[in-house]
Amino acid sequence: MSAEGHGGDGGTSTELPSFLDFIPSDAHSQFFGLTKHEWVPIVMSALIIIFLGLFSLLATRKLRMVPGRIQSLLELIVEGLENFTKSQMGRVAERFIPFIGTFFIYIFCMNMLGQIPLFHSPTSNLNTTVALALIVFFATQYQGIKSKGVFGYLKHMVGKPVWLAPLTFPLHIMQEVLSRPLSLSMRLFGNILGEDTVIAIFIGFAPFLLGFIPLPIHLPMVFLALLGSTIQAMIFALLASFYIAGAIGIHDEEEHH
């Protein structure tokens, strides 16, 4: 495998080839308005969804009182996600465990997919991370309005003291609409793209060091990428739970207690 440059958006980026690159078609031909390279994150995301759906169905169809290895692993993961969500969201955690847990597992799998030869991490594409951030944004606003009502949520954005509203309200709006979605999407995108790019560069250097003898000089970066992928999925889930809990008012209740 060798690193190659793609210019699907007019620029160039260092990437390893995916299995879609071996489909015999013009790289600039379009399918439903998208080039083959632009389809890569969509196809990879769909594969993760299909894999997680099938795995969940097969792993949970015969649950037992005395769990086997797979059931024990699933119970361990679910328990860990429950404890994680409860530590961030307090009394409302139970109804958000599926949402936050799905975010973590989905992003974790997308991050890890790039470590498999001929596959790419969908989260190394900004469109994917922006879509994930927008889901968190709309979920946060919906839960805030549902919990406090429209006027109560606007009052929450004004903050205290009220006489500072002309300053705090615009700042809060900018934070909700621009700062948080931007930081969520750019942090995940930048870290995963950086990891994948460095690995691709190291693999590209390998043939020049010992001729045609494959030298896995990228292995240390792979282990770092595995750690980084886990941390980034955890940070995204952590911030998502923090934003939703803040919109509902959980943090305000904790301060009063």
Rank of each mutant, 00 (worst) to 15 (best):
A133N: 02
Q232P: 02
L132W: 02
L182C: 09
S13R: 11
S87W: 11
G114M: 00
E79K: 14
D196Y: 04
L224M: 13
V177S: 01
V78S: 13
Q115D: 05
R61M: 15
E255P: 06
N127A: 10
R91P: 13
L215M: 12
G152W: 06
F138W: 12
S124V: 01
R91C: 08
P207S: 07
A165S: 14
S147V: 05
F31R: 05
M234K: 06
W163M: 13
E195G: 02
E94P: 05
M89A: 06
P216T: 06
S87D: 12
F208D: 11
R61P: 04
M112T: 01
H28W: 04
I50N: 04
H156M: 08
G11F: 09
G68R: 07
M110E: 03
L81S: 00
G33C: 05
T197I: 10
N111R: 03
V40E: 00
N125L: 00
L227V: 09
G249K: 08
K155G: 10
N127G: 08
P24T: 09
P216R: 10
V158T: 10
Y142V: 14
G53M: 08
E38P: 01
T129D: 04
M221A: 09
W163H: 14
M44K: 00
I50R: 06
E255Y: 14
E75R: 15
E254Y: 10
Y142W: 15
I70F: 12
H156N: 12
L209M: 15
G80A: 15
Q232K: 03
T12F: 08
I199M: 12
I116N: 00
E4F: 14
F119Y: 04
T168V: 05
R187K: 07
T197A: 13
E38F: 01
H257P: 00
T85Y: 07
M221Q: 12
M110V: 00
V177L: 09
